[in-house]
Amino acid sequence: MTDQINLVRASEVGKLPVVTIDGGEDAAEIKDVVYDASRHHLVGFTLNKRGWFRGTMKETLATENVAGIGPDAVMIESDACLNAADSAPEQLDRTGENYSVIGVPVVSSGGAALGTVVDVVIETGPDPKAVGYEVDNDGNRIFVPTSAQMGLSGDNLVVPAEADEFVRNDLAGFGAAVSSFRDLLAGRGDARGATS
């Protein structure tokens, strides 16, 4: 049940170039990583232009149009995969309403303050999704898995008390913890958002 999964920090994806497979060109550069915090799936990316005086592009990149997320680039089939402003997914189009999770305080349902969010861990693959949060706990970085029971707002991130035992101090061990945590939720029939 503990399948090998590829994990990457969202902040690392945020600096990657977007490369077309058909032409090998740098079409853009990832700016913001947008995800649905209730379902945890990756919605897409906002983009920056390439070049010295580069600004934000009107086009966005939906996750459905991504061919692959690698350690050095985000691959798309062609320039046509970039979404124009009027054809972008609804959640990407409302970037003014989206809010940054970086710096949000993390509290467990047991009432324990776990620190503040410094990054989001993304599982790459055919269905990219957020699988956890990197939390700064008094200088110590820990990784907390997401779950269907979690509440998130711009004010607080609430994780279930059960997640405490799956907290890890390194990203390598966190992959196995995510799988184990999913198994736990599935075993309890409590994986509400996992199947969506």
Binding site: A10, S11, G14, K15, E29, I30, K31, D32, V33, V34, Y35, D36, A37, S38, R39, V43, T46, N48, K49, R54, G55, T56, Q91, R94, T95, E97, N98, Y99, S100, V101, I102, D119, V120, G151, L152, S153, G154
Partner: peptide, 18 residues
Amino acid sequence: RQRSGSVLAAPEARQQKG
């Protein structure tokens, strides 16, 4: 300015708060 990207949560998460 160009590198000031972030990780954004979609609005649906705010609607399901609580």
